[in-house]
Write a protein that binds this DNA or RNA. Sequence first.
DNA 1: GACTGGCACTCTGCGACCGGGAGTGCCAAA
DNA 2: TTTGGCACTCCCGGTCGCAGAGTGCCAGTC
Lengths: 339, 339
Amino acid sequence: MDDRKLEVLRAIVEDYVATQEPVGSKAVAQRHALGVSAATIRNDMAYLEEAGYIHQPHTSAGRIPTDKGYRLFVDRLAQVKPLSAAERRAVQAFLDGAVDLDDVLRRSVRLLAQLTRQVAVVQYPTLTRSKVRHCEVVKLTPARLMLVVITDSGRVDQRIVDLGDVISDDDVSKLRTLVNGALVGHRLPDASAAVAELPNTVPHELRDAMVAVSTVLIETLVEHPEERLVLGGTANLTRNAADFPNSLRQVLEALEEQVVVLKLLASAQERGTVTVRIGEENEAEEMRDTSVVTIGYGPGSGTVLGGMGVVGPTRMDYPGSIAAVHAVARYVGEILAGR
Amino acid sequence: MDDRKLEVLRAIVEDYVATQEPVGSKAVAQRHALGVSAATIRNDMAYLEEAGYIHQPHTSAGRIPTDKGYRLFVDRLAQVKPLSAAERRAVQAFLDGAVDLDDVLRRSVRLLAQLTRQVAVVQYPTLTRSKVRHCEVVKLTPARLMLVVITDSGRVDQRIVDLGDVISDDDVSKLRTLVNGALVGHRLPDASAAVAELPNTVPHELRDAMVAVSTVLIETLVEHPEERLVLGGTANLTRNAADFPNSLRQVLEALEEQVVVLKLLASAQERGTVTVRIGEENEAEEMRDTSVVTIGYGPGSGTVLGGMGVVGPTRMDYPGSIAAVHAVARYVGEILAGR
DNA sequence: GACTGGCACTCTGCGACCGGGAGTGCCAAA
DNA sequence: TTTGGCACTCCCGGTCGCAGAGTGCCAGTC
């Protein structure tokens, strides 16, 4: 494959992304200084079409990139397009104002959505990879407790525990001490055994309560840790009605369903490396009309706590999205490291 | 205004809601047994149009209700349309499975969205009207604390406090006791003065830390209590593309912005009474194409903790939406009361 | 052998046109 | 007050024609 052919592909991708209209040979010849005539470009286009990188909506239209074409573009042609200084400052300033983890994540989503003008998704740090910093036990009613688990990523989760019987304040604080002893400093999966053992180590009168507590901990935190997601900028999906002629509804539903998105985020979580999934490369049927740009984020150490990214039409500004996702993930990581 | 004219209006509203097409005199005459001919209905329609309850998209089309027409329908014609037994059971079963407040609210939103096939919104219980049940102080790093405020509605909020200096575990637990003394059992606004006084009541070495803590409490919990919103079923907005020819994007943005919705919910919060806002009745420009059905919810006692409701096209099934919103609010109230 | 200008061809998009149909308003009669 | 009849209006869908864009191919040039 010719260098010039690649340049032609680049021109087609860039122009199509910018104008949203099929681009013809003449347009390429005059908007990009390739030093050859339109006729030559036509020949190259014929080749590119033959090879499956572009295609014609109909005989006498210009060309638009195929998913395969975008893939080649992303892999070989996309140049890094760093954020402007102003953008970088904005990211930093905006994120620094956050008051807690929820706030950091909500702000990240907004940032991503604004920077890329697309839908942004950010996953909460997964419970499985965070260490427990503290577990508070609060009595809600005489026979009902609330467990509040705080992890080192700043994530806070609550669970209600129904006891069969009333419990004294004194016993509550004993429970608290014991539970913390088993949990603090450990990742949840690692603490599983210790938590399961807890009921066997307590005085008889605390037994039932402890069983209830450890059951809740194991069932709802260890075995089915809740993965949460923040979504933002869904309005951007409607920016170009033409992008999702029929699938807008599907995409919105998939986003709201969360499951599909969580899978996407989970399956591409190297820290510092952006993963791009283009159109039909997506496993999920509903996302075949979209491209997804994701990255794992986490504190400096290299651990990945969760994923974040943007979802948009295959016709998206890949270099820009990649840069934005990368930058936001980095800052979020820094903030998490600082906490 | 004639009884029959009202019936004609009802017929037009019901048919239009069902078919989404302008309804003509003939259709009314045969689908609804009013015992009069199409010509008579034409006369009534002329009257209704004159009075502003219906209008014609163009000369030779049927009629569609105006916002004023919907209003009359809702006020005088809408019959209660109770949920089916199956629906009621589903609501109860689904909500009873919730593990904590977050879960209750998320499930409520889903329920509402599914029952009404519209966008659902649920507000978190406002902090201002909940009593503090416990405030946990956790040391995140040597010089940084996390406050976790738990209220009797089950809502849990966190805040980060940056201290200028390191703090000992001992001092942290002193802080905890003091803060809890000032907060527990009170509504946040009522505790404001006590919290502001806290720094003056502590030993000298705790002073700085306490200032930091009480500042955060007052600034981010008392003065700017965070109102949160759960959104669901946004995909339903795209159910009928014709509903929001141009404003779909605006509406999505407004929903995401939250401010507009929070105002809507705040301004109509009588418990047990559903408020309906139809099209142009909405103050917010962006919502002029939508109708909003809201209600306040709260535990049995009569206190309203927050609002919930649905947002949809003016052409919505009002009786159905009203019934669904009512039912879900009631069950959520019961659950809140039980906790 | 690669590139280029020219040219015929194809296909869409858009506006004009037109007839069928739905629905109305009005009128005179019951 | 209601009703059947009727002329009228306007949308909607289909067809037609045309301009424009873009192509593929070919013959000629460097």
